[in-house]
Design a protein around this nucleic acid. Structure first.
Lengths: 343, 343
DNA sequence: ATGAAAGCGCTAACAT
DNA sequence: ATGTTAGCGCTTTCAT
């Protein structure tokens, strides 16, 4: 029935060799199916001999589930996204799910990805284009936003606690006795950056303090370096700088130190957001607010599982973080007023 | 024939709606098939109405090609691997190939990945375990090694020019008037590190110079920091340090500067390998030998294409790099003797 | 517990 | 140029 020798061995080949029916082979490879021990052994022996491996495509066709989720990535130079991706690859594998990765900026890609019947789409901190959203709607593929908010109630968002983090950072810097507060944004299209900024400014304002200066570091290292340079050259140089994420903060530290001879942590304070692995490197020691990757990815997988079971997940899933005090910002001598209590 | 309304629309649904045969629908979605303009329009209209998208699983089953390649990743904290992955995602998409990503360290993963009939497996700088190799052999899935050598002639390797790079770095440091040459390895299981070290030592030896000291920075930031600390505390401190890759070199720079107050580039010279994006950051300015990502990924895709066409690719595919002189190593005043000419 | 048969959604001959 | 038919490799009733 099957040619063998050329293509891969099929369940029929195994069945023939073992002298059983093809459906018996299927059962032998299905956990919890009703097969006798001897039958299973006979089949496994034959399968082994032929190097048989079940064909997931054929199985998906009939079971109507592929166990594949699509993942859209953008800028992996930001170590937070790289770490998140790595953790995602592990937790998906743990959950017996496969990951189909594609570059978010390729509009055409999504069409191809959808054809593989992915069960969900995870946007790794990248915005979904309008065509992507439309495609997914038509094909009933749920979109999950990792580290990005969305107004669309149908999209589940997994977020760090941006507002609380922004407030906490303001409180920490204020308690550290700083005077002139600056903010470096990661771009107005970054919802995370915007939410962090809002929390930061809100807390300051509640204490009667206006933001001293604001810069934008969107899109490139050059822009980030330019932003910090502008701050350093201000007639009234800020003494406290909150950078929208660690990636920007690390660039800011480098530039401030190397180009302006500034001792970060004493001359000025720089705080980031994310707590990327590099933040704890010796010599960098970046004070930051954590977005713990393992829990955030775990929350993402929980949403995936809910979706697969037909359960409607929460629209907003906020994973708490905490301030990680290191050397890049002067440590307060007085206790920090908890910023979660407003006013 | 088809229920519709519940699952996704199939080619039959479209055919029914358009009043044509199902194979006509198939042709309408197959580039270069013989369909009249009016027929195609009619079909596309119906397809649009139903939100029909061809099922790649079903297609793969019959065409016997999935257009999927598996990619195994390990440590994405090293920005070289993260950048390579990002570029790979783009070039695969350009080649109309899908990427199934999985964590290399999960032995069980490979079994699952293979079931999706991947057409090749790319190991992104990670060693394939013996079971993985065996599995791939049984299933006739070709293994491609990115940034890693293999003795197995059946595995195509895409490599930077490690030997030439190691030699070039030695020559550059020597021309810079350095005296005591150290090397920090990325671990003995890293073939790239070993090859770079061999080239470095060989050139030095040819000039009658023994390696002053050698350390190992395998596996973790802590080990890398420990390695550079040992070097700094040596009674005879080295003045030239070649780190097996930029990731290690960046850690070394940080530690040397922050913990030992050393001015890298004047007090001592540190050179890395890879030319990761961060190497050119202001303030870091790491001298390094490039492993150009786009060409290396392009070479990888060429191998993939050859494999898909049944052509046996070269076992070794070495992509040339070049020394990128920046500020972390003292620049030679005399011309550098070309190290590619031995002796 | 096992086998026979139907069919998942598609492509690829083969007719016409 | 279009329709008919036969599978791709598997799971899943349904018999037995």
């Amino acid at each position: 029935m099957s040619k063998l020798k050329q293509g891969r061995a099929t369940a029929y080949d195994v069945a023939d060799l073992a002298g059983v029916s093809q459906s018996a082979v299927s059962r032998a490879f299905t956990p919890g199916a009703s097969v006798s021990r001897e039958m299973r052994q006979k089949i496994m022996k034959a399968a082994d001999e032929l190097g048989y491996r079940p064909n997931a495509m054929a199985r998906s066709l009939i079971t109507q589930q592929t166990n594949i989720v699509g993942v859209a990535v953008g800028n992996l130079i930001n170590p937070y996204f790289a770490s998140a991706l790595e953790e995602l690859s592990r937790q998906l594998a743990d959950a017996d799910l496969r990951m189909l990765l594609f570059p978010a900026t390729y509009e055409t890609s999504i069409t191809k990805i959808i054809q593989y019947q992915v069960e969900a789409l995870i946007m790794l901190s990248v915005p979904p284009g309008p065509d992507l959203v439309e495609e997914c709607k038509v094909c009933r593929i749920p979109i999950i936003m990792f580290n990005r908010s969305s107004d669309d109630e149908s999209q589940a968002c997994i977020l760090g606690d941006n507002a609380a983090g922004g407030r906490m950072i303001a409180a920490y810097l204020l308690a550290g006795g700083h005077q002139r507060f600056a903010f470096i944004s990661a771009g107005s299209q970054s919802t995370a950056s915007n939410e962090r900024e809002a929390g930061y400014r809100a807390y300051l304002l509640e204490q009667g303090i206006e933001l001293h200066h604001r810069e934008d570091a969107a899109f490139s290292v050059e822009n980030a370096a330019g932003a910090i340079r502008k701050l350093m050259l201000l007639p009234q140089r800020p003494d406290a700088i909150f950078c929208a994420n660690d990636h920007v903060a690390m660039i800011a530290m480098q530039v401030a130190q190397s180009e302006f001879g500034i001792n970060v942590g004493t001359d000025i304070s720089i705080i980031g957001f994310d707590d990327v692995p590099q933040a704890s490197w010796p010599g960098l020691s970046l004070t930051t607010y954590s977005q713990p990757i393992a829990p955030m990815v775990a929350a993402t997988l929980e949403v995936v599982e809910q979706l697969r079971q037909g359960i409607e997940p929460d629209h907003m899933n906020i994973v708490p973080g905490s301030l990680v005090a290191r050397a890049s910002a002067r440590r307060p001598t007085q206790p920090v007023r908890s910023p979660s209590i407003r006013g």
